[in-house]
Design a protein around this nucleic acid. Sequence first.
DNA 1: AACACCCCCTGTCGGC
DNA 2: TGCCGACAGGGGGTGT
Length: 289
Amino acid sequence: MPELPEVETVRRGLAPALVGATIERVELRRRDLRFPFPERFAARLQDRRVLDLRRRAKYLLADLDDGHSLIMHLGMSGSFRIDEETPGAFHHKRDKNAAHDHVVLHLDHDRRVVYNDPRRFGYMLLIATQAIDEDKLFRGLGVEPLSGALDAAFLARVFGGRAAPAKALLLDQRLIAGLGNIYVCEALHRAHISPLRPAGSLVLASGRPTAALARLPQSIKGVLTDALKAGGSSLRDHRQIDGSLGYFQHSFRVYDREGAACPTPGCKGTITRVVQSGRSTFYCPSCQK
DNA sequence: AACACCCCCTGTCGGC
DNA sequence: TGCCGACAGGGGGTGT
């Protein structure tokens, strides 16, 4: 489930149970996810206390009391849940999916944090907290889209002279870190910019943003903020930590709505699906130029 | 450098 | 009902 709003929703759900807790034992049910777990992974986590749970881009970072941080990425299908230890309890609904419970963090106070990931595109690793910013996973990351760093001047600077479609640059984590396929489609619709449009065409010869590009920062922040308020989007059966469903998918204006009427007031267009760089793009050819 | 394409893995859904 | 291909919220690697 993991673009910025979903990862942040996971963080907020996990933090109350995880921060301040001690990891008493770690159960690894396989030796790898996308990558092999680090050497002595379970042993290094054992008896560590969690000092903080942060998010950077689509990563979760649990700062531990030994100067290291547990880095977690959910890939395409990763999710966490919190189980209270209730011996004898029978969680019928969990059974089918339990085959993909790959990591169990046994915490104090009889609590478990369980990581489930059917496709195993997620991963976990340990990095010295102080060295995170220089780590190769993090040093190249772009700006946080909800921060002040994302504004029209920034977009004009990174879009200028680029021939790639606007959508491709918005998905590039080296420029803006945290957007994914859904929210890029949604933000471009809100800004009335075609995802196919060459990014450079949104920048004037003077280097200043066009009027359309000047709308984009607020469109990005707006869709992310709205999604956060809704607890993220729940495609298929993904759930929040507490088992409830995020509901922003009901507010999608274009994503997965091929053939539907464009929701822009006064627009008579129809939402269309095209493929860019092998991934689906949804947009309205009528009001997105 | 910049861009397009392929792949990793499993599950689900629509069409036949 | 069953089979088969297309596709899925990410991102790393390679080729041009």
